[in-house]
Structure formats: C-alpha cells, structure tokens
C-alpha cells in the first residue's frame, strides 16, 4: 500500500504535475488542488494500467477512485486483488 502510494507521488512529481516539495493530505482533491486535470488523468491512468498490469473499468473512473491519493491507492489494491 505504502509502496503504491509512493509510486503515484513519484509519478506526479517526475512528470511535473507537482513540485518536489508539494505536500498534500491523503484524501485531498487532486483536481481541486489544481494538480491534475482531465488530460493529466489520462496520463496517470495509462501509467497505472501499465505499471500494475491492470485494466480500469470505465465505471470506476469516478472521483471516489481517482481524485485523491487514498482513492487511487485503494483502487489499485482492489483491482490487483481481483486479478490475482
């Protein structure tokens, strides 16, 4: 869990979505904080699918699953568990 979380943060920082010193809470909205928008999310989704070899069903492309670090981490864990 921790590792997935760190990986997402690393991705957001390495792709310049946010500065290396940006701090934000687990459940803070990434869109409202201006970190990511619809096009940025596409990049993030591609990264997640590739990195964890998972397909994210359209029904799951919702704010609950994608708008916070916590949501994204939970989504990946859930999809990985379903697959294995």
């Amino acid at each position: 869990m921790e590792q997935i979380r760190n990986d997402i943060i690393y991705f957001l920082k390495s792709q310049s979505f946010m500065d290396s010193d940006t701090q934000f809470a687990e459940n803070e909205s990434l869109t409202k904080a201006g970190i990511i928008d619809s096009i940025g999310l596409l990049e993030l989704l591609d990264h997640i699918s590739e990195r964890y070899s998972i397909e994210i069903p359209e029904d799951m492309l919702t704010p609950d699953n994608l708008d916070s670090l916590q949501g994204i981490t939970n989504l990946i864990v859930k999809l990985k568990t379903e697959r294995s």
Partner: peptide
C-alpha cells in the same frame, strides 16, 4: 460534472 472522471460523466 467534470471531464476528469469519465465514469462519472457516463453515469
């Protein structure tokens, strides 16, 4: 809504 969350747009 917002185009960020396509699943939500569809619903």
């Amino acid at each position: 809504g917002s185009m960020s969350f396509i699943g939500s747009v569809f619903s």
